[in-house]
């Protein structure tokens, strides 16, 4: 074996070994950080009430169950068939009272091109069109953390059933954003979920 080949193999082996150590370290770290578990608590009701104003204050909306979590929907089976590439539905809520009663709200997670993880709430009215949109969590997201772009996106998505990356970008005035793909995936998955919930109902 030539010296060049030996050196190349040595370099590749060193890089692989370091990568393996890194993966082990990250896997260990991941075990110690709490995972996000969606629940219908006071914070979530406040967010839902802002997204789909019920007319009641947040405390009343919480106490009088203006929103409920759809425990009958089989999330695991749905995600097994539809979730891909880090996208999944985390929870399904229903608007029980108020002006938007009958709306179905999905909480979905997806990843953008730049590995931005985003958890979004998307609400569908009784006509099947989106009537509410909100970001629950984002990580270093260019579109959703810019207040102006976020508001523009929220306005643009209302009344639609889905949006492509191009539509997401043009509606916000952004020229390029890896997170646009995350928004597109989230909306596509939440649309599928909405139809599955309606079929099951």
């Amino acid at each position: 074996m030539s010296a060049t080949m030996k050196n190349s193999l040595k370099a590749a082996a060193a890089l692989i070994a370091i990568a393996v150590v890194s993966v082990v370290l990250l896997a260990l770290a991941n075990r110690f950080f709490p995972k996000y578990v969606p629940k219908l608590d006071a914070d979530k009701v406040t967010q839902l009430n802002a997204m789909l104003p019920t007319g009641a204050d947040d405390a009343t909306a919480l106490d009088e169950s203006y929103f409920s979590i759809d425990a009958d929907f089989d999330l695991e089976a749905f995600n097994k068939n539809n979730g891909a590439g880090g996208s999944s539905v985390l929870a399904v809520y229903k608007a029980e009272k108020g002006a938007y009663a009958g709306s179905i709200i999905t909480e979905t997670q997806s990843t953008g091109y730049g590995s931005q993880i985003m958890i979004l709430l998307t609400s569908y009215g009784t006509d099947g069109k989106i009537n509410g949109f909100a970001a629950v969590r984002t990580s270093g997201d260019y579109l959703l953390e810019d207040a102006d772009k976020y508001e523009k996106l929220k306005s643009a998505v209302i009344g639609k059933t889905a949006m492509t990356q191009g539509q997401v970008l043009s509606s916000t005035g952004a020229t390029a954003a890896g997170s646009a793909s995350g928004v597109e995936k989230n909306l596509a998955l939440s649309g599928e979920c909405y139809r599955a919930v309606k079929e099951g109902a």
Binding site: N7, A14, I18, L25, L26, F33, I117, S139
Partner: peptide, 26 residues
């Protein structure tokens, strides 16, 4: 770490700790 691949090796190491910080903040 072989001298010729030291920079990619450093980047992997640094990226690991950056990811841990990111996970912690998130």
């Amino acid at each position: 770490i072989p001298d010729k691949v030291r920079l990619p090796a450093y980047i992997i190491i640094i990226a690991t700790f950056v990811t841990i910080v990111q996970m912690f903040i998130e």
